[in-house]
């Protein structure tokens, strides 16, 4: 008898809990009707950003492609007329990317950055292979300041020898005077 009462009691509490929730405000967000803003640091689709002056940041150094554990980044570096090294083409195969973010960590110029945007489902896998024109954006992403060529010391339109950050004037090789 006692055990039967206990069972009924348990049932009643259970139903009561459920019943209570009928009158609460729901916390489920309706996707895709509602798209929750994700934190900046979340890792999804990758972009190639520009430096604050608008120049392409990526110098095609191959470090991201070397760091990528699934080898989904490929590119070809080349020299631009003004001496800047840049990517003639740059390809990421998002069908393979595991969004680990190692490329971003490896990048010495802050060019490659993961963004929170993740809605890239495609039926055709080839559409997940992004080329440089798909990756390049018009802003600086998370790093608003860095311009690699201001520090590198190589001659580009950003600066001549001795004109970069923390540089002395070039040595005069044919004179002993300072």
């Amino acid at each position: 008898m006692k055990s039967a009462l206990e069972a009924i009691g348990a049932l009643a509490t259970g139903f009561a809990t459920t019943f209570k929730h009928l009158f609460r405000k729901p916390i489920t967000e309706e996707y895709p009707e509602y798209r929750r803003p994700l934190p900046e640091r979340s890792r999804a689709v990758i972009v190639l950003t520009r430096d604050p002056d608008g120049g392409e940041r990526c110098v095609a150094c191959y470090l991201c492609s070397a760091a990528c554990p699934v080898s989904c980044i490929s590119m070809q570096s080349a020299e631009r007329e003004d001496g800047r090294r840049y990517a003639r083409w740059f390809r990421i195969n998002f069908a393979r990317c595991i969004y680990c973010g190692l490329c971003e960590e490896a990048c010495p110029t802050s060019a490659i950055q993961l963004t929170p945007y993740f809605e890239t489902c495609e039926r055709d896998i080839l559409k997940l292979v992004y080329e440089k024109e798909d990756l390049l954006v018009e802003h600086s992403g998370k790093d608003k300041e860095y311009n690699f060529y201001k520090y590198a010391g190589v001659v580009t339109e950003v600066g001549d020898k001795g004109a970069h950050e923390r540089e002395e004037k070039p040595v005069k090789i044919k004179s002993n005077l300072p």
């Binding site: 010391g153 020898k161 070039p170």
Partner: peptide
């Protein structure tokens, strides 16, 4: 070290070798 770095001008050394003296 946070001081200034020494720099050099580079030279044109022909079609085979690129110079970057820094």
């Amino acid at each position: 070290y946070l001081g200034l770095k020494r720099t050099y001008h580079d030279q044109y050394l022909g079609p085979l070798v690129q110079h970057e003296m820094n």
